[in-house]
Design a protein around this nucleic acid. Structure first.
Length: 271
DNA sequence: AGCTCACCCTGCGAGC
DNA sequence: TGCTCGCAGGGTGAGC
């Protein structure tokens, strides 16, 4: 479900409910997530007071005094703060019970999500240490993208989704950003000029910022921590619009597969 | 080193 | 109705 805007929307909606609360119980109903949930997770978290809710790439970082819970929503995960008597649904794998008796509930049908406990602020954890710059910071600029794409023959769309070059850009927003930049998603990354790299970086930032403002995309089942859907998909220019007319030139939007993922683009606008 | 592909898992809609 | 197939927003790791 989530790309960076959905994770950031979730973070913002969780923060006021979590910061300052003490964790009174942790209930793990199914440990078989992307990686098995470590045996001491409950003991690490119970009794701890939540100091911060941060985000790095698509990871949520729930910080307590002596460590951090790294939480990834995978493809189908979501987090909601619910009342103590809220009935369980299928795939409600983890409950974190707070001292106001409300519950932070992790729901993930496909179980591609994950939870990890790590000491300190989480930044040195192997899952985070190798991650590239955040796309919405100044470290991600045209010069940077131009530099890291030299010698790379892979398609630019694939490169955008490679978390060791830039983080947080997933399948929806890669297609959307390439459309805004007028770049064909199949272009070999090394063939992009410095000017086009600059244009693409601007398009990535613009696309992500718009999506965050819209509360993320709601394809299928995404909701934020309060159960509210996002509405970015109503603004999508190409994603899931195969066969429709391009909003810019009227040509038919094409749907292709790159790797195992869907890509949408306008053959006329994107060269 | 980088590229490509298979795979982890469940649910849903389409087609028969 | 019920089946099979393909596809879905993520990421890792094997084999080349």
């Amino acid at each position: 479900m989530p790309e960076l805007p959905e994770v950031e929307t979730t973070r913002r909606s969780l923060e006021p409910h979590l910061v300052g609360r003490r964790i009174v119980a942790v209930i793990v109903r199914d440990r078989r997530l992307r990686w098995p949930v470590q045996a001491d997770l409950e003991a690490r978290l119970e009794g701890a007071r939540i100091d911060r809710v941060d985000r790095r790439a698509k990871y949520l970082l729930i910080g307590v005094a002596d460590g951090t819970l790294l939480l990834h929503l995978g493809m189908s995960g979501n987090l909601q703060v619910v009342g103590p008597a809220t009935p369980l649904r299928k795939h409600d794998h983890v409950d974190i019970v707070l001292d106001d008796s409300r519950v932070l509930r992790f729901h993930d049908p496909r179980r591609f999500g994950s939870l990890h406990w790590t000491e300190g602020d989480g930044g040195s954890h192997p899952l985070l240490a190798a991650l590239a710059p955040e796309p919405l910071t100044d470290a991600f600029d045209g010069d940077y993208l131009h530099q890291v794409t030299r010698g790379r023959s892979a398609a630019i769309k694939h490169i955008l989704m490679n978390g060791t070059l830039v983080t947080g850009v997933g399948n929806i927003y890669a297609s959307e950003a390439l459309f805004r930049a007028g770049i064909n998603p199949r272009t070999a990354a090394r063939r992009l000029s410095a000017v086009r790299c600059t244009r693409l970086v601007a398009a990535v930032k613009e696309t992500l910022a718009l999506a965050i403002d819209a509360g993320g995309s709601t394809l299928r089942d995404y909701v934020d921590a309060g159960g509210r859907p996002g509405h970015f998909q109503q603004q999508s220019l190409v994603y899931e619009r195969g066969g429709q007319a391009c909003s810019r030139c009227g040509a038919s939007i094409r749907h292709i597969r790159q790797g195992q993922r869907s890509t949408y683009y306008c053959v006329s606008c994107q060269t």
